[in-house]
């Protein structure tokens, strides 16, 4: 496709913690505007890869590039600027329990801009409306259901219109109908905001529904990257089995 370029590149990413090799050979790239899904079985290193992409774990200089930067090696002020350009939706939502949904969603704006509070409230309302959660603005996270929590977390992640959205297991703990609705929501938001989405999941239905690119991890190694169709008919027996079992075949 014309004009597309790699927005994320991972080259020979290695992760060693306490003398244990967690990731040993991770290579993939994600093009602008894509929904890239990192899949693999439990313990395959999906979340570790995500944490490297977010700069929460240190990685070697050239191993990770997100919008041309490796967040783990940036200076504190550069890191702050980097984090303004990304949105992250965590597995359990990770909303701050002491704040209302509205305060949670508005937090990045409050921290990084000098916008007046009433304007921030307007932006928060808009974002909550986009995730169909406008009535929850004054509720606390403890008052929300699992699906609502995920949508509130999504609203917080997109509040500053980031070019890249990272999602860690967005579907965990959701029933299939709510999960489908959440996947649809992410696809729509990606279209509306022109984002690139990187998602970690082991939910095959989400992969089939959303993914433009699939990155398959096995025991800390990326053994495949390509389209969903290529993944389903991959030469690699484990990938085929993963999809077959996920689709209930």
């Amino acid at each position: 496709m014309e004009g597309k370029h790699s927005i994320i590149e991972v080259k020979d990413l290695i992760s060693v913690m306490n003398n244990t090799v967690i990731l040993s050979d991770i290579n993939f790239h994600v093009e602008q505007g894509e929904i890239a899904v990192i899949i693999g079985g439990s313990g395959s290193g999906k979340t570790t890869v995500l944490k490297h992409l977010l700069g929460l774990y240190h990685s070697m200089d050239q191993a990770v590039s997100v919008m041309g930067e490796n967040p783990s090696v940036l200076e504190e002020h550069e890191q702050k600027a980097f984090y303004k350009k990304i949105g992250v939706m965590y597995q359990e939502g990770a909303l701050l329990k002491s704040l209302t949904v509205g305060e949670n969603v508005g937090l990045p704006l409050e921290q990084h801009t000098n916008l007046p509070p009433d304007f921030i409230t307007e932006v928060v309302r808009l974002k909550l409306q986009m995730v169909q959660l406008e009535n929850a603005i004054d509720k606390f996270p403890s008052q929300l259901s699992g699906g609502m929590l995920k949508r509130a977390a999504l609203a917080r992640a997109i509040v500053m219109d980031p070019p890249v959205l990272f999602c860690d297991e967005p579907g965990s703990g959701l029933d299939p109908v709510t999960l489908y609705a959440l996947d649809e929501l992410i696809i729509n938001l990606k279209e509306q905001l022109g984002m690139t989405v990187v998602m970690v999941t082991h939910d095959v239905s989400s992969v089939l529904h959303m993914a433009d690119r699939v990155i398959f991890l096995e025991k800390g190694v990326s053994i495949f990257q390509g389209t969903v169709k290529d993944a389903k008919y991959s030469d690699h027996a484990n990938i085929r089995e993963f999809f077959a079992r996920g689709m209930g075949e």
Binding site: Q79, Y83, K84, I86, V88, Y90, E92, A94, P108
Partner: peptide, 18 residues
């Protein structure tokens, strides 16, 4: 500790908040 376990501290970091 609860914030750490539920990734709230990670969420703060990735929002650029110390």
């Amino acid at each position: 500790a609860t914030m750490k376990v539920t990734s709230e501290t990670d969420a703060l970091k990735t929002m650029g908040v110390i």
